[in-house]
Computed example of a mutant assay.
Amino acid sequence: MNDFSQALSIASSGLKAQSGRLRHVSENIANADTPGYHRKVVSFDLSADTGEVSLGRMTLDPAELREIYDPSHPLANETGHYDGSNVELIIEIADAREAQRSYEANLKMLDQARQMSSSLMDLLRR
């Protein structure tokens, strides 16, 4: 595999991984008010051979669920409490921002490889 196609392959794998991460972050944000919802956390796997990154295993955050007091809620127990979610919106927004920046960096890498390839083709035509 030549350097240009390897650079494109690595950058596209990063784009795929970050878009998957954003999907999980958006699911967490959407379910922040869902009773009993556990936050999803993803990891990344790096291929030592190619340098490509992929979305690894998705795990559930083992943090305690928030206990919410609302005696009128249908899930409330005899004390008026029910289990909320363990999603912290500040953390999810920070994760989304980090994934967005990583996505943009991979996109910039794709653009740089494309520009270099175009410049090389212009040189070869002369």
Rank of each mutant, 00 (worst) to 15 (best):
H73Q: 09
D33K: 10
A113H: 04
S54L: 01
F4V: 10
T79C: 01
A94F: 06
L65T: 04
L22F: 11
L107N: 08
E52P: 00
I68D: 11
E78M: 08
D45H: 09
H38I: 04
L46T: 06
E92G: 05
S54F: 06
G80D: 10
R114H: 11
S26M: 12
G36A: 10
A48T: 06
A113I: 01
M1R: 03
F4W: 03
E67H: 12
M109Y: 07
S26W: 13
H24W: 10
P71A: 06
L107S: 15
V87F: 08
D45S: 13
L107C: 02
Y69I: 03
A32E: 11
F4P: 01
L120V: 15
T79H: 10
M58A: 07
V41L: 15
I10P: 01
E98Q: 15
R57N: 10
A76L: 06
N86Q: 03
R114P: 02
D111C: 00
R101I: 12
Y82W: 05
K40E: 13
M58L: 11
V41R: 15
E78C: 01
S47M: 01
R101Q: 15
G14R: 11
H81C: 06
S12C: 00
S119G: 14
E98M: 14
S26R: 08
D45F: 00
I29S: 02
S117A: 14
R57M: 09
A76F: 01
H24K: 13
E92R: 04
L110A: 12
H38C: 05
Q115A: 12
T59W: 00
Y37D: 09
R21C: 02
Y69K: 08
G84A: 11
P35E: 10
R114Y: 13
D33G: 15
R39M: 09
N2C: 05
G36C: 08
Q115S: 13
A113W: 04
D83C: 02
I10Y: 07
G56Q: 05
S13V: 05
I68W: 05
L120G: 03
T34G: 09
R66H: 12
L65G: 04
I68T: 10
L120R: 04
L55M: 06
V42Y: 02
G51T: 03
M1E: 07
L46G: 00
I91P: 00
R39I: 04
L46Q: 08
N31V: 11
L15S: 01
A11F: 04
R126D: 14
G14M: 07
P35S: 09
D33R: 08
S47I: 01
N77T: 08
A32D: 07
S13Y: 07
L120E: 03
G80T: 12
L120T: 14
Q100D: 03
S9G: 09
Y69L: 13
R21E: 02
M116H: 00
A63R: 15
H24E: 08
T50D: 05
S12W: 03
L124P: 00
I91W: 02
A32I: 14
S119C: 00
S13G: 09
T59R: 12
D122Q: 14
E88H: 10
N106W: 00
E104L: 13
D61V: 09
L60W: 02
Y82D: 01
G20T: 02
V25T: 11
G20A: 06
S102R: 12
R101C: 03
Y69G: 11
Q18R: 15
Q112V: 13
G56S: 07
R114G: 03
P35I: 11
R126A: 15
